[in-house]
Amino acid sequence: MEVKKRYISLYVENQIGVLAKISGLLAGKSYNLDTLTVGATEDPTVSRITIGLTIDDITYEQVIKQLNRSVVVIKVMDFSDVPIHKKELLFIKVSSCSEKDKAEIFRIAQAFSLEIIDYDKSHVMVQCVKTEGGNNDMIALFNDTFINRIEVVRGGSVAIEAISTRDQ
């Protein structure tokens, strides 16, 4: 069965233990997530969770139903066929940088619209805000260029329905 990358956005009660309930529910059913992010919304009693997962149609339908069933889930939004904006924050720290390396990092940053947010004599830190796929590409590029010298931390995707109809 065909597996596809999908995003789900949830409105949930902003209470202690809700994240554990949602992640536990998904883990208990053996659904494997790619990313999960959570944060409070404009309404402090409500949090919003973005879940990214690569999954087939039938299992995906079950995920949606199981989430809908949870008392702490206020609303489930299936972003499968909806134009959305999705972005993920990524930090890449490169160590043992020579001057030549630094110049290369600055060139890469310029070419791919990355931001240099910190550096010292031998380190450079890059901030990258792209889609998950775009960030995967950046990690691959840095891995190839600065073998065994990078440290990566990524935030997981956040997604929101587009105002216009173009998928971003």
């Binding site: 202690i16 233990g17 554990a20 309930k21 536990g24 529910l25 208990g28 008392v71």
Partner: peptide, 16 residues
Amino acid sequence: IVGITNSVSKYAVTVR
């Protein structure tokens, strides 16, 4: 107990 029973109950909650 809420953490323990989440997956075997319809709903579990601590009164805070």
